[in-house]
Design a binder for these strands. Sequence first.
DNA 1: TACCAGGAGAAAA
DNA 2: TTTTCTCATGGT
Length: 217
Amino acid sequence: MNPERCRTVHATLEAAYGPQGWWPAQTPFEVMVGAVLTQNTAWTNVERALERLTGRIELTAEAILALDEAALADALRPCGYFNIKARRLRTFCQGFLAGGGLAGLAALDTPGLRRHLLDIPGVGPETADDILLYAFERPVFVVDAYTRRVFARLGLLRGDEGYETVRAAFETALGADVPLFNAYHALIVRHGKEVCRTRPRCQTCCLSAGCPAAAVT
DNA sequence: TACCAGGAGAAAA
DNA sequence: TTTTCTCATGGT
């Protein structure tokens, strides 16, 4: 990843869309719950599920674990995959408490915290990195499907690289910069929603004249 | 009607 | 080891 072009893409997206103010949550724990619920799911549906859940219980690991799995799944119904997500959310809460809760996890260094999160069934690389960056403010770049799609179209990625390869490429190009990582990932998602989603199978939208990112090519 | 969404894990090849 | 399948509601 060419560092200069990597920064140019960010500047171009920021100029096009402005600050995104991520993550849309009130507390670090809400970030974590949202990160699990948003797996392969539109955020608007996650919001519905969070509203249903917080309408029934306090949003704490203890309260979630006190709810039986069927009741939890019912609350999560609007965000899809509700049976799987109920199980994953309960498992996550167990891992959260086993790690000493917010304070215990915050005391871990970033590699240790990442390992702990990845050891929790249902937490993959992207979910772990969402949590690291947006809940714990650690300098970890979040890679998602939009990142691959946009940067492949820009010719900055092949598109078939492994998760860790892409993450390392961004972190090397940009240096450890939490506010930048926070803003950049949010802008990529915004761009994906605004442009790529309108033409999901289009391979060239980021190269077209109407695309905000076209200026970097 | 068909496709996709801020993935992850199990099963099959 | 790599690819394919499953999970599921809601918006476009």
